[in-house]
């Protein structure tokens, strides 16, 4: 990715602020709802840009360890999914589940961090 600033993350932030500060106060009904949805979607993109790289690296390292092979994240996840389906990972269950839980936790942290804290 080029290093020009504003970076992609800074541009997304600017768009999110634009929606929050300038669009949201001036719309209502469905459009207001969809503006909130859009703001949330951009927040996911921002969190992914900030934390996604490190998460990918950690996930890939765990997958290498589990599968004893190398590849990109897509290939490695495909390999793990196939191995789970065929039963090939049945003897490494605890390790697989731990990996999957860590991965899911990372994904939640990007998609909806509030999911992990109860409201009320």
């Amino acid at each position: 990715m080029p290093t020009d600033r504003p970076t992609a993350a800074e541009l997304v932030e600017a768009v999110r602020e634009f929606l929050t500060d300038h669009v949201a106060p001036n719309v209502e009904g469905q459009l207001a709802f969809h503006t909130r949805v859009a703001v949330n979607a951009l927040a996911i993109v921002e969190r992914t840009m900030a934390q996604g790289g490190a998460m990918d690296d950690a996930e890939l390292a765990r997958l290498r360890e589990l599968l004893g092979q190398d590849g990109d994240l897509g290939e490695m996840n495909g390999a793990l999914a196939r191995a789970i389906r065929s039963g090939a990972m049945d003897n490494d269950r605890a390790a697989v589940l731990e990996h999957l839980r860590l991965t899911a936790e990372d994904k939640i942290a990007l998609a909806n961090p509030r999911y992990l804290t109860p409201r009320g």
């Binding site: 996840n77 495909g78 793990l80 999914a81 789970i84 389906r85 697989v96 999957l100 991965t103 899911a104």
Partner: peptide, 8 residues
Amino acid sequence: QPHAGFEY
């Protein structure tokens, strides 16, 4: 889109 979590 292989999905290891759901597969598990």
